[in-house]
């Protein structure tokens, strides 16, 4: 920080902020808890797993790029509904989304994750890491699954997840921000609200620290995704150019 004092906020302000962010999260979370129950946590059958595994890498990459892009569109909508986000300059809105939207998708993934079976909701059913073998990046896939399992073990409520997502998105240390101080103030307020909610929910002392550790894990996953994409693009430039969603290419520089 540049030494500016923390914004003055009352408990009521923090409650109000927490409620607003939570509402935005629920409105834009793509899958509601109730809907997920209805999917009855059906896993892919062995034949279906084999069918994903036998797809050409280009087809599986395209499918995953489409699914990620769909999820990102909901994150953009989440950002737009966070109090103060649309008051930032447009450069900074873009910078924050470019750097943070995939991180929020990864955070949200724990809502769709079955820790006991090590499966995630994907393309209509629950999939284990083996479903993604054709991508040719087993190490990244298993790191993403490990991250999700770790997030699940924190057993965050939707309110906590919403505020953590907002705080990830409003990271004031992203490169190329023009009005860093504005973003910093928003992030500080969001983190205070998160802390307030964690205390209200009688979380153990270390809960906030555990979440802070997740931030560095997220950054490393996003860097690894970029590296894998670069390697894939080097082999299949035409697939990326003609078949990948334009928003995905815009965000990840493909």
């Amino acid at each position: 920080s540049d030494g500016d004092p923390l914004p003055t906020v009352s408990m009521e302000d923090l409650d109000h902020l927490a409620q607003g962010v939570s509402k935005s999260h629920l409105e834009t979370c793509q899958y509601l808890g109730a809907e997920l129950q209805q999917t009855s946590w059906q896993n892919f059958l062995q034949d279906e797993v084999k069918s994903y595994q036998s797809k050409p890498a280009e087809v599986m990459w395209q499918l995953c790029a489409v699914k990620i892009t769909e999820a990102i569109q909901y994150v953009v909508e989440f950002a737009k509904r966070i109090d103060g986000f649309m008051d930032l300059c447009q450069n900074d809105q873009i910078v924050l989304l470019k750097a943070g939207s995939l991180e929020v998708v990864l955070v949200r993934m724990c809502r769709l994750f079955d820790s006991q079976k090590n499966t995630v909701y994907f393309d209509g059913k629950f999939a284990g890491p083996d479903v993604f073998r054709a991508l040719g990046c087993d190490d990244l896939v298993s790191a993403v699954f490990d991250f999700s399992r770790g997030m699940c073990s924190l057993r965050l409520t939707e309110d906590e997840l919403a505020l953590f997502s907002a705080s990830v998105l409003l990271s004031a240390d992203r490169s190329w921000l023009q009005e860093k101080l504005q973003v910093e103030k928003l992030q500080q307020k969001t983190q205070l609200a998160l802390q307030h909610v964690l205390q209200k929910n009688q979380r153990e002392e270390g809960a906030l620290n555990k979440l802070r550790c997740k931030v560095s894990a997220l950054r490393s996953l996003v860097i690894r995704h970029s590296e894998k994409l670069s390697a894939f693009r080097a082999l299949h430039p035409d697939t990326v150019r003609t078949l990948f969603p334009p928003l995905y290419k815009e965000l990840f520089g493909a």
Binding site: E27, T28, Q73, Y74, V76, I94, K98, P246, L247, E250
Partner: peptide, 20 residues
Amino acid sequence: KEKHKILHQLLQNSTSPVDL
């Protein structure tokens, strides 16, 4: 701006292209 045309559009749209 041209480089982030779609993000700009999504940010400016009052409704999202996805069915919320």
